[in-house]
Design a protein around this nucleic acid. Sequence first.
DNA 1: AGGCTATATCGATGGATGTCAATACGGTAC
DNA 2: GTACCGTATTGACATCCATCGATATAGCCT
Lengths: 124, 124
Amino acid sequence: MSIRYYDGPMSTTTLPITDSAACCAPLTREALGASQADGLARSLKALADPTRLRLISIVAASEGQEACACDLTAPVGLSQPTVSHHLKVLTDAGFLSRSQRGTWAHFALVPGALDSVARLLTSA
Amino acid sequence: MSIRYYDGPMSTTTLPITDSAACCAPLTREALGASQADGLARSLKALADPTRLRLISIVAASEGQEACACDLTAPVGLSQPTVSHHLKVLTDAGFLSRSQRGTWAHFALVPGALDSVARLLTSA
DNA sequence: AGGCTATATCGATGGATGTCAATACGGTAC
DNA sequence: GTACCGTATTGACATCCATCGATATAGCCT
C-alpha cells in the first residue's frame, strides 16, 4: 500500500495482439490441430498457477478492474521480483495490460481475454 | 486402430470426487483465497498441455464421447507410455473417466467437468 | 500351458518453471 | 545534483514435468 504523489501522463504499453484463444471451435466440437492445441495450452499455462490466479482476481476485484503493482506484492506473500515476474507472464499472455503512471505500474484486466479462453472449454 | 474381440463386463473406475473447480465464485467476482486458487490451478495445470488438450478433443469428438486408448496413441504421435501418462493425469484431474473392457481401456469425457472450470473463468 | 496384445509402471534425462537475493533502471523529491 | 523509492532484470538454484526405453501386469486366444 503506497500513496501516489504523481499522476502524470498515462503511457499504455502495446496491447497484446496474440489472441491465441479466440480463433477456433470449442474443444469439444472437433479434434484440435497441433498448432491450435499449442496456442490454447500456452494460454492455460499462464493461468495455471495459484499466485497468478490470485493476482488476476485481485486486479479484477479492484476499482475499474485495475490495480497498482505496489498493492499486489503483500497480498500474495511473495518477493517483489517474483510478483513482477508473474505479472509479466500474465501480460505477455494477454490477460493483463500494463500502464505506467509516473513511478507506478498499473495492471488492468484485458476485457474478454478470460472469457475467450472459457468459451473454448465450454461444450455448449 | 484395433478390432475389439471381446466386450466383457464393464468395470468403471471410481469416479473422481475431487470437483476442485465447482465450488466457488467466478475468478473475477472477488479475491481468491489461497486454497481456492490452488485447486483451480491444479485443474488448469492438467489442461495446460497441448497433447492433453488434443486427447480431450479426440475423446469428445468420438462416438458417445468415449474412445479406446488404442486409438489415442497414433493421432498424437507420441509413445504409448507417454499417452498413458497423459490419460492418467486427465483422469486424476477428473476430466476423463476410465473403464476397462477386457484388454482395452476406454476413456470418456466426464460431463460438466470442463464446463465447471470454464464457468470459473467467465466474468458473466 | 505358452504366446501374443494392450496397458500401466519404473527409472532416467533434458528442459521448463517458480522462487529469491542482488542489481540495474527510471522517476520523484529534496 | 544526490538520495530515495518503485519496478524490472539478471543469475542461480531447486523443483517439477514431458518424454522415452525397458519392464511389469493383465487379459485373450490357440
